[in-house]
Design a binder for these strands. Structure first.
Lengths: 353, 353
DNA sequence: TTGTAGGCGTTATCAG
DNA sequence: CTGATAACGCCTACAA
């Protein structure tokens, strides 16, 4: 026998709104014979609750399979326990790995990660950041330092901690690589081998400040020791294999033929190797080729690719560390440099000519 | 002159809680000279509001740069406008591309995507699904059909629409490939070429029901026409290049040497090609090799890889379509098969022996 | 240490 | 068509 009609004589009552079919703190409280406040305190760990009571409430909550309503919690506490990452592309394994590491670190700390995709487009990035801000995120990871001023404004007025990644940035907190030094390192290595005429195949710089910094580093190294790379020796298109192939074709058509090709990614370098073979050029005897990233296949190309290894997952880990520290009011470093290393393999050598 | 002290003589007032520093509907309402209810109606589009008033409110909201508070909205409306995807790995370009497509489709419809990573682990997947459920998500995309029963229970009791992807599933809604047919297609193609002794290098089946279905398809085709693949001719490890290399070494050590190797991914096939070259085997004269996925580099290997092209981004698109339809109460199809096609290139041929 | 109750920002019901 | 106003589920200042 059920009694469910003890309610209103008063007809002021409203029609009840559709309710989520899950339990609430009140259900748990009732079941445990305590007040909702106590349940809340237990679940948020940090308050002083009698040890026995705490154990009891925890058990009851667990038995009932209770999970707090994230939105309600966020609304009441003004803290969302949610962090966002906006990356240029999820399909680039580089970013996928970094985001993966970020997520892992955040999950451990009970935070949820929201991932968005800007498609290498500043406008789209702004849209995404806006949407994310509406979700009351507690912090945000961005890629690169080049963002719409409205992005920076929004983040600052809303007081949302953020960190630029994959770059080192003087003006903002950052976790990333010294891309300028990466460029210098590669260029110097090739100069040491005796190369003097260089070609560069990279991603379009306006879309990637990382690529731009590396190019600047390359230019600087060359200028110090052997001149410079003229504009027509820098081919910047996209980042696919066929862009590498096309890039080499362009470079070979130039009057003074380069003996070394510096590529912005391993994928581009793969394209260059493919095209070199198609043109009957021997690598490294006729042409030296370098990549950046040290992706899985780099070591297995013929010849194995000389490239720069980036500790990408460290970017995600340290970004998480930085954001959590900011959110929880702990002290933070303004910038964190992630190491890289030149991996010399068979695709580079002294020019034989 | 401002009057802001007309409030309480009564000291029952509480200390004000920390407020979000952003505007609320009330601010917009005040500025537009209407009630919060009207603002809400305008912003949610669907109600009957006088056209002039609507325009006015829209302008005011826009000028103020108002963005609704997602958590509050979710709490009040019991709809979160958030969808989740749990994938085995974000670093696998396959899933990255699918998720990317899903996100794009959802963003267009004003939904936010939450991405989680199960690391090919059922327990971890359960944890992620639980956390996601707490976030009041409106729907969920899963990979494969093999999930902890608790996952299915949770989704069903909470009444959360979900869709299994990358597979076709009789028991649950799904968007994916007919993996069994993929296996059959590849095997039949090789049988047609005249091969009789096969090796298989794939991902560990218990972790991937996709791999298991494909293997079943392969076995079925062989059994119908030329026997079968003994257990020791199936090498299932992980999915890296070196696993492919190792796999071929194992297979070559077997008494009856296979003339064709079917690989579960292009990456594994790459490994097999590398090892074949190392062993001095000519492909396809001495050994035929196939992959699955048709990733970017497949066409550029030496020899170019025969593989199966999967329309991965369609998986994401149709998953989005399905979930939105369910959420909005529109009719849905129980299962959607995404096309695949065999791409024949240079890594396969008739056995010369 | 525990309970009570007001409010977080929005939506949706009801009355006008 | 518009305006009050009661929830939504939780947290936290305050009282006990």
């Amino acid at each position: 026998m059920t009694i469910d009609s003890e309610l209103p004589g008063s007809s002021t009552k409203r029609a009840s709104r559709p309710r989520a079919n899950s339990l609430t703190v009140r259900d748990v409280a009732k079941a445990a014979g305590v007040s909702p406040a106590t349940v809340s305190r237990v679940l948020n760990g940090n308050d002083r609750v009698d040890e026995k009571l705490r154990k009891h409430v925890e058990r009851v909550a667990d038995d009932l399979g209770y999970t707090p309503h994230a939105a309600a919690r966020a609304l009441a506490s003004q803290r969302s326990h949610t962090i966002a990452a906006v990356v240029p592309s999820l399909e680039d394994p580089n970013f996928a790995v970094g985001v993966s590491a970020l997520q892992q670190a955040l999950t451990v700390e009970g935070y949820t990660l929201l991932i968005a995709n800007s498609n290498y487009d500043e406008e789209e990035e702004l849209r995404q950041v806006r949407a994310l801000a509406a979700h009351g995120i507690a912090g945000m990871m961005l890629v690169g330092a080049q963002h719409s001023s409205q992005v920076y404004d929004l983040l600052e007025t809303r007081n949302i901690p953020f960190v630029n990644t994959w770059v080192l940035d003087k003006g903002h907190p950052s976790v990333g690589f010294d891309n300028y030094q990466i460029g210098r390192t590669v260029a110097n290595y090739l100069l040491d081998l005796g190369h003097t005429c260089f070609g560069v195949v990279a991603q379009r710089s306006p879309r990637s400040d990382r690529a731009a910094s590396r190019l600047a580093g390359i230019r600087a190294a060359l200028q110090e020791r052997a001149g410079y790379v003229p504009h027509e020796y820098v081919i910047d298109r996209s980042h696919r294999i066929m862009d590498g192939q096309h890039g080499l074709r362009m470079l070979l058509a130039l009057p003074d033929r380069p003996t070394a090709i510096i590529c912005g990614t391993d994928t581009l370098a793969f394209g260059v190797l493919v095209e070199a073979q198609a043109q009957g050029l021997r690598v490294p005897e006729d042409l030296s080729v370098t990549g950046i990233n040290d992706v899985e296949f780099a070591a297995h190309l013929t010849p194995p690719l000389t490239t720069v290894r980036l500790a990408v997952s460290e970017v995600g880990m340290h970004a998480a560390e930085y954001l959590l520290a900011r959110i929880e009011g702990r002290p933070t470093l303004p910038a964190m440099s992630i190491p890289f290393s030149l991996i010399v393999r068979g695709s580079t050598g002294s020019p034989k000519r």
